[in-house]
Measured scan of single mutants.
Amino acid sequence: KTYTFRVRIVDEETGEEKEIEVTAKSEEEAKKAAEELKKKYPNLKVELE
């Protein structure tokens, strides 16, 4: 079973919002993916929905 999570990304500089879908095998995995995004884009606000 896989879970699909919507991750909302807000670029703090431009105020631009993007939504991406993360497919993960567990909620834990999705959280890790969101953390990776935060590391990659430090000025983005990442929200897991």
Rank of each mutant, 00 (worst) to 15 (best):
E47T: 14
E13S: 12
E16G: 03
K38V: 11
T2L: 14
K40G: 04
K32E: 11
E36A: 11
G15S: 02
K1L: 09
T2N: 11
E19M: 15
E12H: 10
A30P: 00
E17T: 13
T23M: 12
V10K: 08
P42W: 04
L37P: 00
E13I: 13
F5Y: 11
L44I: 08
P42E: 04
E19A: 07
Y3E: 02
K40T: 06
K38M: 14
S26W: 02
V10D: 01
K45E: 04
E17S: 13
Y41G: 02
E27P: 11
K39V: 08
K18R: 14
I20K: 01
E17L: 10
K40W: 07
E19V: 15
N43E: 05
K31G: 05
T23C: 13
E19H: 14
E13P: 01
K18C: 15
K18M: 14
T4K: 12
P42N: 05
V10G: 02
D11C: 09
K32M: 12
A33W: 15
T23R: 10
K45V: 10
A30I: 07
A33P: 00
K31M: 13
K45F: 09
K38E: 05
L48D: 04
E35V: 08
N43I: 04
L44G: 05
L44E: 03
K25Q: 12
A24W: 06
E16K: 05
K18H: 14
E49G: 11
S26A: 01
E17N: 05
V10T: 13
F5T: 00
A34P: 00
K1M: 09
L37F: 09
L37S: 01
A24T: 05
E13V: 12
A24R: 04
E16W: 14
E13G: 06
K32D: 06
T4Y: 12
E12L: 13
V46E: 03
K38S: 10
E29C: 11
E35L: 12
E35F: 11
E16Q: 07
T14M: 02
R8M: 06
E27V: 13
G15N: 03
E28Y: 10
S26N: 11
E19Y: 15
K25R: 13
T2E: 12
P42D: 04
A30F: 11
E49I: 15
I20P: 00
T4N: 06
Y3N: 02
K38G: 07
Y3L: 07
E36I: 09
K39H: 09
D11P: 00
E12M: 14
I9G: 01
R8N: 03
E13Y: 08
F5D: 00
V10Q: 05
T2W: 15
K39A: 09
T2S: 10
L48T: 06
E13K: 12
E49L: 15
R8F: 12
T14R: 02
Y41T: 03
V46M: 08
E16A: 07
K45N: 07
I9S: 01
G15H: 03
E28H: 09
E49W: 05
K45R: 13
V7G: 01
K39R: 11
P42M: 05
E36N: 08
A34N: 02
E47Q: 11
Y3F: 10
L44Q: 06
I9V: 09
K40A: 08
E28R: 07
E16H: 06
R8Q: 04
I20N: 00
L48I: 12
E47C: 10
V46Y: 08
A34M: 15
L37W: 10
L44R: 06
E17Q: 09
G15P: 00
A34C: 14
I9W: 15
E29V: 03
E17W: 15
V22W: 07
A33C: 15
R8K: 10
T2I: 11
K39F: 08
K45C: 06
R6K: 13
E13R: 12
T4H: 07
V7M: 06
P42A: 05
Y3Q: 04
I20F: 12
K39Q: 09
K38R: 14
L37I: 12
K1R: 11
K39L: 11
E28V: 08
K1W: 09
D11M: 03
E12K: 08
T2M: 14
L44P: 02
E21I: 15
K40H: 07
I20C: 13
Y41K: 03
Y41W: 09
E49F: 06
A30T: 01
K31Y: 13
I9H: 01
T23W: 14
K39G: 06
V22H: 01
E16N: 05
T23P: 04
E36C: 14
T23Q: 12
T4Q: 05
V46L: 09
K32V: 10
T23D: 05
K31I: 13
A30C: 08
E12Y: 09
K31D: 04
T2F: 13
V22A: 01
E35C: 10
K25P: 09
F5E: 00
E21L: 15
K32R: 12
E12F: 09
V22N: 00
R8E: 00
T2C: 15
R8L: 09
K1Y: 08
E29W: 05
E28A: 10
K32C: 10
T2V: 12
S26G: 05
L48H: 06
R6G: 01
K1Q: 09
E13H: 10
D11K: 01
I20D: 01
V7C: 06
I9R: 00
A33Y: 15
G15F: 02
A30L: 13
A33Q: 10
E28P: 04
K18P: 00
E27I: 14
E47F: 15
G15I: 00
E21V: 14
E12D: 08
E47K: 07
E49K: 10
K45P: 03
E36M: 13
T4P: 05
L44C: 14
K32G: 05
V22T: 01
I20S: 01
K39N: 07
E16L: 09
K1A: 10
E36V: 09
A34T: 11
K31L: 14
K18T: 14
R6N: 04
V46A: 04
R8C: 09
I9A: 02
K1F: 09
K1T: 09
S26M: 01
V10I: 13
E27K: 09
A24L: 04
L48S: 05
E19Q: 10
L44W: 13
T23Y: 15
L48F: 14
I20A: 01
Y3V: 04
K45T: 10
L48P: 05
E16P: 00
E21P: 03
V7T: 01
R8W: 15
D11S: 03
T14K: 03
L44T: 05
E28C: 10
L37M: 07
V10P: 02
E27H: 12
V7F: 14
A34V: 15
D11L: 03
F5V: 06
Y3P: 05
E19N: 09
E36F: 12
L37K: 01
L48E: 05
R8H: 06
G15M: 04
S26D: 09
K31T: 07
D11W: 04
E28K: 08
K25S: 14
V10N: 03
E35M: 11
G15R: 02
